[in-house]
Each structure stands twice: as structure tokens, then as C-alpha cells.
Amino acid sequence: MSTAQKPAPIEVHDVTVAYRHRPVLWDIDVTLPEGNLIAICGPNGAGKSTLIKAIMGLVPLASGKVEIFGKPAKQGRTLVAYVPQRESVDWDFPTTALDVVLMGRYGHLPLFGRPRKRDKEIARQSLEKVGMLDYADRQISQLSGGQQQRVFLARALAQQTRVYLMDEPFAGVDASTEKAIVVLLRDLREQGCTVAVVHHDLQSVPEYFDTVMLLNLRLVAFGPVETTFTSENLNKTYGGRLSLLTEVGERLRKSEWSARR
């Protein structure tokens, strides 16, 4: 079909996010191109998770807008599979691995509708893709951290979307899970999917990803790993706090006032 001007998977326009009036992300403007593996890097508190949540419409935007395949985020977000941080849920919840993965199908089901046979099939296939099919009926608290992470990834796969946003899937996982995730990411890219991953291990960025986003309260750099993942950009991201930005943010919080919204 028309190759010209197909809307990008995710467009972030001048987005600012504030918690209690203190901006934690300033004026982010970025377009995630289709078919890339994107690492989102930055120091602690740089707003990496917040950016993902802002894209998914899980935190209110102080200003700006997000478009997903040209649609407003609230409508478009069903086209994006979201993998939250593993610690964000209580793994002692009474349910099985398969049941959690099945939750990825809920967006495709009518409200109050029961999962059908086909949904269960897709859930099992998703578990198989992350090497967890043998654990389908296991209570989730009995799984190791890495296995729990893989269940979360399988849940995203079960959504069968073209765009994935993953919040620190590599955090605290064993070597075999790390390998499984890398294989999965490459598979997704081969299928032409767009995947953005919050990633902490700078060393493995060039190996695992082709595109990098450097973030520290504002967007420092975004582009192909070869040209963007430079020591100069990394210094800008990690070295030296932008004390003025933090200071102004703190003042905004104290004044509890905002010209935006």
C-alpha cells in the first residue's frame, strides 16, 4: 500500500509529566520508528518508567500528547503491549502462569466475556515462545524471578500486537532468562515489530539493540546505536546533574502551582 507517510507506531509530542506539580519529564519529543529494538537508558530517577507509563496513558500528562499509529493514546494503546516491572504486582496472588498470560487476551474479549478455546491456545503458544510451557499450571509464587519475568513477557505476546513497551525486563533475571529475552526481542524485530525496552546494563546495549534513547528528565539523545551511543552523549546523560532543572522542579512542587493543564 502507500509507503508515503504511514503513521509511526508511537509519536510523543512535547510531553511533560509532573508528580505533585514537580515535573519528572520535561518536554519530551520523540518518534519511535517501526521495526526497531530501542533501549531506553538513563540514571535512576531519569523518568524512564514514567515515559512508558505516559505513553500508555497510565499517568496524566501535564502537557503535550501521545499518538499511537496516528490515534490518540487512549484509543491507540490497545495496539501496544505493555510489560510492567516485575515488582509492580504481588506474585503471591492465587493464580497460575497460564492464567496470567491469558490476561493478555482480555483486551480482545468483550467485557464480562469468558476466554475461548482459541485464547487459551494463544496463551499456551506465548508461554512456549518464552520456554515456559512446562510451567503453565504452576502457581506463580513458585516461579523464580526470571520465570515470573518470562510469564509477563508471554502475557504481552498473547496480546498479539506490533508494538511492545517493556519496563526493565532484564532486571534481576538469571542468565537463561536473559538469553531467552534476547532471542525473543530478535524474533519480534524479524517480524517487523517495534520494541522499546527500559534497560540498565549499558554494556549490552550495542549487542542487544539497534536504537537507543538516552533520557535524564529530558531527552538527551535518540538515534541508531552506532551514532548515538557515544561517550559524549552518555556523559551528558549520566554525568553531572542538571541542578537548575531539579531546582526549578522543586520550586514548582513547593508553589503547588502550574500554568499548564
Binding site: 494503546r77 490497545t78 510492567p84 482480555y106 483486551g107 467485557l111
Partner: peptide, 23 residues
């Protein structure tokens, strides 16, 4: 009984439910 699936989801991971587009 009707909303079993939805109540399970919001008890386990409400944010994911929002991301799925559920009310």
C-alpha cells in the same frame, strides 16, 4: 460471577488492565 475475570485482573494488576483499554 459475571465480572470474575475483570475483578481478578484489577486485583492482580490494575494498571495492566488500564493499558489493555479496560474500564
Amino acid at each position: 460471577a459475571l465480572a470474575y475475570k475483570e475483578f481478578k485482573l484489577i486485583s492482580f494488576d490494575a494498571e495492566f488492565g488500564t493499558a489493555l483499554g479496560l474500564p
